[in-house]
Every structure is written in structure tokens, then in C-alpha cells.
């Protein structure tokens, strides 16, 4: 069993990893690379199914276990079915009731809800900045001052243009230096992990056991 559960998956990683590396650097393998490329999306496609199914499962369990929350799970379920049916039928027709319904549900329900939920961050960041940004050391003052300059600089006009110039300098010189250092570090880190994966040293992606 250990062979099927552990060794074979690991062997596949090593084989596909070496193949991936070879296809990247050897131009003669371009034909195989293209075939492999069009093959990968099929595998990824099913991983989306997992997300969908686990969410549905979550709401069913919740409906069973928390009767007081049941009404919300029913709402979720109804909107799921309506949207899925409208989409499955609507997208295979050119125009028609279902297409319109799907379009409208998307543009006037899905998009505004997601955008609004995400926009709550505007309030949280404001409140957090007010509470947490306290000057205690000169080094944190530096962060605050540079933040202020950039915030004013990006909306500057007229007499505030001096902040505009300063913020452009902060972004083009110290920020580039700091971010470049980070990018190089991250790049080397990703490469090291990738090499560890194809050599079979790093195995955490296979999960426990």
C-alpha cells in the first residue's frame, strides 16, 4: 500500500519535475511541451470542482446541525440553484430569459456584493491606522512620515505638488531598493523550494502520513 500511497506519487513528482525542467531548457522538446501544456488544464479543472462541492457540503451540514441558522443556509442553497440553472441554460443560448437572468444576477448581485464586502477593508484599515500607528521610535516615525508623504503625494494638486515630487522619489528610489532586495530573496527562495520538490526532498504538498 505504501507504494501506491506514497512512493508512486513521489516518483511522479520527480519524473514530471525533471520533464518540466528539461522541456524548459531543451528547444527540441517543444512539441512535447505543447502537448503537456494543453493537458494540464484538464487536471486543474477538476480542482475547481472540489471548492464547489466542499462549500455545498458545508452548508448542508450547517443546515442539519444549526437549526437557528437554517434559514440562511436555505437562502444560500436557493441562490446557488437559481444561479447555476440560469448559467447552465443561459450560456448555451444566444439571448433569452435565462441569459438575461444570468447576466443580471452576475452584474447586479454577484459583482456588487463581492465588491462591497471587499470594500469594508477601507473602514478597517482606517480604524486600524488610527489605533495602531503610534510613534515610539525614530525608525517607526520614518515609516509614518514616508506613508504620509505618499498618501498626500498621490492626490496632490496645486501647492501640494511638492508632496507629489517627494512621493515619486520615495517610490522610485528607496522603495525600489527595498522591494528589489525582497524580490531577489523571494526568487532564490522559490527556486530552492522547486529544486527540493523535484529532488523529492520537500514532500509537504503530499499531506500527512
Amino acid at each position: 500500500m505504501n507504494f501506491w500511497k506514497r512512493r508512486l506519487p513521489l516518483a511522479l513528482t520527480v519524473i514530471y519535475g525533471l520533464a518540466g525542467f528539461a522541456m524548459q531548457i531543451i528547444p527540441a522538446l517543444n512539441g512535447y511541451r505543447d502537448i503537456q501544456n494543453s493537458w494540464m488544464p484538464i487536471l486543474f479543472g477538476f480542482s475547481i470542482a472540489i471548492g464547489v462541492a466542499s462549500l455545498t457540503k458545508y452548508h448542508f451540514t450547517k443546515m442539519r446541525r444549526q437549526p437557528e441558522e437554517r434559514v440562511y443556509s436555505i437562502i444560500t442553497f436557493i441562490s446557488l440553484v437559481v444561479m447555476a440553472v440560469a448559467g447552465l441554460i443561459g450560456m448555451s443560448q444566444d439571448g433569452g430569459v435565462f441569459t438575461k437572468l444570468f447576466d443580471n444576477l452576475f452584474s447586479y448581485v454577484y459583482v456588487p456584493l463581492q465588491a462591497t464586502i471587499f470594500s469594508l477593508l477601507a473602514f478597517y484599515i482606517t480604524s486600524a491606522a488610527y489605533r495602531a500607528f503610534k510613534v515610539s521610535e525614530w525608525i517607526s516615525t520614518l515609516l509614518l512620515v514616508s506613508g504620509f508623504i505618499v498618501m498626500l503625494g498621490r492626490v496632490a494638486f496645486g501647492p501640494l505638488m511638492v508632496f507629489g515630487k517627494l512621493s515619486e522619489w520615495i517610490m522610485a528610489v528607496p522603495t525600489v531598493a527595498a522591494m528589489r532586495g525582497l524580490l531577489i530573496g523571494i526568487g532564490l527562495g522559490i527556486m530552492a523550494t522547486a529544486i527540493k520538490i523535484i529532488l523529492g526532498i520537500e514532500r509537504s504538498y503530499l499531506g500527512g502520513e
Binding site: 488544464p41 462549500l55 446557488l80 448559467g87 463581492q114
Partner: peptide, 29 residues
């Protein structure tokens, strides 16, 4: 708020189902 939030969850999963069928299973497989 809770009603709106749950509508969102349902609609987004329903949307994924419809789009996955039309844009992955059909054209890619």
C-alpha cells in the same frame, strides 16, 4: 447583512458551476 452574505455565497458557487461546465469541461476536455 447575513442574508446578503449568504446570497453572495450561493450565487458565487452557482456561478462557478455554470462557468466551469461551459469553460473547462466542454472546451478543454
Amino acid at each position: 447583512y447575513k442574508v446578503a452574505e449568504h446570497i453572495f455565497t450561493g450565487v458565487s458557487v452557482g456561478y462557478m458551476i455554470a462557468q466551469s461546465w461551459h469553460n473547462i469541461i466542454m472546451p478543454k476536455l
